[in-house]
């Protein structure tokens, strides 16, 4: 394989891992965000946690896989983004840590449950918000100097990235409500369906706002065929959820919600490629953006990373599918 093909392949793999993370851990995070409204009673909350317990550990690894493939394939991007967005990154991680322990300790009835409730929701809300903001930043462009971040912490919180973060929170919330509706019964299921319905109505509004902002923030010529296809697919997936035949099946709605997330990642990838971290003033030679071509590892490393991902990914998908099948069906509520 030629070098630029390897570089593009690694770009696709990084996107694929992040997309899979958003789809899979997305419903864990979404249920965490909606926990107070959705769970309501200790019994409801316990049932929700029971639905996540066997799978959330595995779901979280997709983030780790995305981050490490990024490090291996595009070390300069990893270095620039993580050191540049320093406190935002640390805060995301601390939130994920808090989510993990609150999950464990909520169910074992150790310590004050209200604290775990709070940490679980905060720990689920912060990661998609900040990861979305990070994504919005690299798409819109950040101040760069000699391929290093040259802004401050506050630079990150501009309207466009914040809107990407909000859309991130919204789509994982929809994903969470969809998963909850699929896995639960009775009142809990009804609540999940109602929440899902309301959030689905907000979605087109948020998407339109973001589309307008994108039009203003990102040069239009960058939104190539892939980005447009992504938009079309996302809208189609949303419309399909309004069709009675789909809407009446919680399983199909969940799949459509997952497809929406996948499509939005297609938009992000289409908007970004071949850049990875766009610059605010790319015309100045010292401020050039980081692209797949100027920031990648050498060919040998890329070949190794592509081989690992290409061999590993199908195997992971197969056994993940198997384990989901083992735990398929509704969770029985526990008092």
């Amino acid at each position: 394989m030629s070098l630029d093909l390897l570089q593009s392949a690694c770009f696709v793999f990084v996107g694929l891992f992040f997309a899979a993370y958003t789809v899979l851990d997305g419903f864990d995070l979404g249920i965490g965000i909606l926990f107070p409204f959705l769970g309501r009673t200790p019994m409801g909350k316990r049932t929700l946690l029971k639905a996540l317990a066997p799978v959330w550990d595995g779901n979280e690894v997709w983030l780790l896989a995305g981050v490490t493939v990024l490090l291996g394939a595009f070390p300069a991007v990893y270095a620039t983004v993580f050191s540049g967005f320093y406190l935002a990154v640390i805060l995301t991680i601390v939130a994920l840590m808090m989510r993990a322990v609150s999950f464990e300790f909520w169910s074992t009835e150790e310590g004050p449950r209200r604290l775990w409730d709070m940490l679980f929701t905060a720990g689920s809300l912060i990661p998609p918000l900040l990861l979305g903001i990070a994504l919005g930043n690299v798409i819109e462009g950040v101040p760069l100097y000699l391929k290093e971040y040259n802004g401050t912490l506050l630079t990150l919180f501009r309207p466009y990235p914040v809107m990407v973060g909000i859309l991130g929170v919204l789509v994982v919330s929809i994903q969470g409500a969809s998963y909850a509706a699929m896995k639960t019964t009775g009142e809990l299921q009804e609540r999940a369906r109602r929440l899902r319905g309301k959030l689905l109505l907000v979605f087109p509004i948020a998407l339109t706002v973001l589309a307008v902002l994108t039009y203003a923030a990102v040069p239009v010529h960058l939104g190539g065929i892939v980005a447009w296809a992504g938009i079309a697919l996302a809208v189609a997936a949303w419309v399909s959820m309004m069709v009675p035949r789909v809407a009446s099946s919680d399983r199909l709605v969940f799949l459509a919600s997952s497809a929406t997330i996948g499509s939005l990642w297609l938009v992000a990838g289409g908007l970004l490629f071949p850049d990875l971290v766009r610059a605010t003033t790319p015309e100045i030679p010292e401020h050039i953006p980081l692209t797949v071509y100027n920031s990648s590892s050498p060919e040998g490393t890329l070949l190794f990373v592509v081989a690992v991902a290409a061999i590993g990914l199908p195997i992971v998908v197969i056994y993940t599918f198997f384990v989901y099948r083992v735990f398929k069906g509704k969770v029985t509520p526990i008092a």
């Binding site: 780790l64 896989a65 490490t68 493939v69 990024l70 490090l71 291996g72 590892s297 990373v305 690992v308």
Partner: peptide
């Protein structure tokens, strides 16, 4: 360093 960590996550 990165490829080893990526292999760790994936494999």
């Amino acid at each position: 360093f990165g490829p080893a960590l990526a292999a760790e996550a994936i494999f």
